[in-house]
Amino acid sequence: MITQFILFSLIVLAGTGGELCVSRAMKRVGEARSFHPADIARVILQAIRIPWMWCGVALMAVAFFALLGALSVYAVSFVVPVTALSYGAGALGGKFFLHERVSRARWIGVCFVVAGVILVFLGKQS
């Protein structure tokens, strides 16, 4: 139970933090103009010069190894839906860490996600 808690906490918290960092870096890079390999390479080369990208990649690597650990023990159709708890972590982080005003609609969505994850957990027991 403790292992399960640690693995899923790492997946959710490190994964969410990583995505936020990567998203922040990509906003600096700007829109990719085409699928031409040279353009894609240009976007990637610009992105790797931004420190936020490296922070994001490091956090996502932690989340990835935690995901591997979880996948070695539990079913894929159980592990992946549980990682949706990151939406709850994102909303809580926005409210208490970034002091954002999280709208009622977003809380309702998060409640749906949490209810869904609870059902997935209950489905594992049955």
């Binding site: 969505g109 749906f112 209810a115 869904g116 059902l119």
Partner: peptide, 15 residues
């Protein structure tokens, strides 16, 4: 589990 996944999809759509 199917119902849970459907709820998660709805939740993400609402978010």
């Amino acid at each position: 589990r199917c119902s849970g996944i459907a709820l998660i999809c709805i939740g993400v759509l609402v978010v």
